[in-house]
Design a protein around this nucleic acid. Structure first.
Lengths: 155, 155
DNA sequence: GCTGGAAACTACGCGGGTGTAAGACGCTAC
DNA sequence: GTAGCGTCTTACACCCGCGTAGTTTCCAGC
């Protein structure tokens, strides 16, 4: 599963965004495909599973009413400060700083927080993506002793 | 303090927004002055203290990265569903629903929340406004046994 | 080589939100 | 009545984000 990639169109579909949004976000450096970037008309972008997680986070934040401009700031911060896997328990955004918290830490943050907090539980993000990847795939062909992995280039 | 009102320019200053923003929000029905609305060029809007609280909430949410469009939805919802004073403990926005929570309720919401939450502690909002009202006033004249209230029309 | 499909690219338009500046108006003091 | 001040109104511009549609390019199959 680690090396599988998704085309731009597939990624947009899995994450439930328009291709236009995906393209715009890639062109404006919010999330560029970390597999292969576009090199011109007719070329192919290759998004990794991790890219999909990021895209889904963005989608969820947008749906929650957060401005894309703010999401850019959040991602910039995370790229500099947050090393761990973004699928940890809760993503907590306070101003332009971001932390990843488990349940107890989250309660602390709440007790001491002063401004507006944006809290995104990450637990469902991976599940959502996996579900859409499965939906996207044709009926799987049962191979001898091996199942095809989602997003395989054979799609 | 209940009947004091503020002009549009004063309100914008107290809340730390541009007059353009205030005007746009009034014209597009986000927060119209509940004292006196504008009736044409040269007329005077009169914002109440409660209007100022609402304006400040909007400002804080904008600063936290929430889209104005979403804030509109939030306010529409609150006007329909939330009767209590908006200066209660925490304003919790989940999708387009809004609840007001004290500390323990907030922890419950967190434990059971599924999507992105936006949480605005209201405790500082009133303080912030009061501070700016005081800053706006000229040096108070000590009257016999009575201090002038903030925002008095005599300003 | 040709065709068809997929995908990136380009262009234009629209709505939302806001900055800037000038004009119009109301009110008060002289 | 006039001047000055404060305030609302109007106009224009700009940026952002994204929808729509056409163009260009790549690739696989025949």
């Amino acid at each position: 599963m680690k090396n599988e990639t998704f085309s731009g169109t597939q990624a947009a579909k899995v994450v439930a965004i328009s291709y236009r949004q995906l393209d715009y976000w890639a062109r404006t450096d919010l999330v560029r495909p970390s597999g292969t970037d576009a090199t011109g008309s007719g070329s192919r972008r290759e998004y990794t599973y991790r890219d999909l997680l990021e895209l889904k986070v963005i989608k969820n934040l947008l749906d929650a009413g957060i401005k894309l401009e703010s999401i850019r700031d959040v991602f910039a911060y995370m790229r500099e400060h947050v090393d761990t896997d973004i699928s940890s328990a809760h993503l907590v955004i306070s101003g332009s700083s971001v932390v990843l918290c488990n349940g107890e830490e989250l309660i602390d943050v709440l007790r001491h927080g002063q401004g507006v907090l944006n809290i995104l539980p990450m637990s469902g993000v991976r599940d959502e993506i996996d579900r859409h990847i499965i939906e996207m795939r044709p009926e799987p062909i049962v191979l001898q002793g091996e199942r095809e992995t989602p997003g395989s280039k054979a799609v």
